[in-house]
Amino acid sequence: MMAEFMQQILHSNDIYILSSYVATAVVLVIMALSSWRSKKNDENDLRILEKQLNDLSGKQN
């Protein structure tokens, strides 16, 4: 059944539709994840540095 389905896809233009939608999904997921992760990493860096800054200013006071 599965082999028949794959055979049908490979021998028709459906393979181009399938490849286009899969490629789009992959590119969109990469773009979303990289944008989100970049923001999260910068948030973490800022949190750590702000803590260091507070500790340092606390010591100086």
């Binding site: 979303a32 970049s38 340092l56």
Partner: peptide, 26 residues
């Protein structure tokens, strides 16, 4: 996605500013 990226760049500027502050011992 653009909002996430702009937020990231704004945060990065703050990170850079704090690093300079810390580097100069406040």
């Amino acid at each position: 996605a653009l909002i996430w990226r702009i937020q990231s760049l704004i945060l990065r500027r703050r990170v850079r500013a704090i690093r300079i502050q810390l580097g100069g011992g406040l």
